[in-house]
């Protein structure tokens, strides 16, 4: 099995730390980006929009690759969904 390249490792590490950033800062982000989709890169919110489609458009304009960028929805009200 071919090992991960340095670039692939960087992508993974970046993504993982951005997911952790979202988790740690959830309450702060919830105040600022309620009911919005946000993109996080390098522990910063780099794009935000009301719909995912608009967010993807903004990401494209900013040259952000959605395949390796954290995209999350920040709900204003939390509805528990069980599955």
């Amino acid at each position: 099995m071919k090992l991960l390249t340095q670039g692939e490792m960087r992508v993974f590490d970046q993504f993982d730390s951005d997911v952790r950033f979202f988790s740690r800062n959830y309450n702060k982000l919830k105040k600022k980006y309620r009911d919005m989709f946000i993109a996080i890169k390098n522990k910063r919110v780099v794009a935000s929009a009301k719909t995912e489609k608009e967010l993807l458009k903004e990401m494209k304009e900013k040259g952000l690759d959605p395949a390796v960028t954290v995209v999350e929805f920040v709900p204003s009200k939390e509805e528990l969904i069980l599955f």
Binding site: V19, S23, P75, E79
Partner: peptide, 19 residues
């Protein structure tokens, strides 16, 4: 694993890379 709020509860989330 990362504990994070998703769908109204704290979920256990795993990150992985698909080649």
């Amino acid at each position: 694993i990362i504990k994070m709020r998703k769908l109204g509860a704290e979920r256990r989330v795993l990150t992985f890379l698909v080649r």
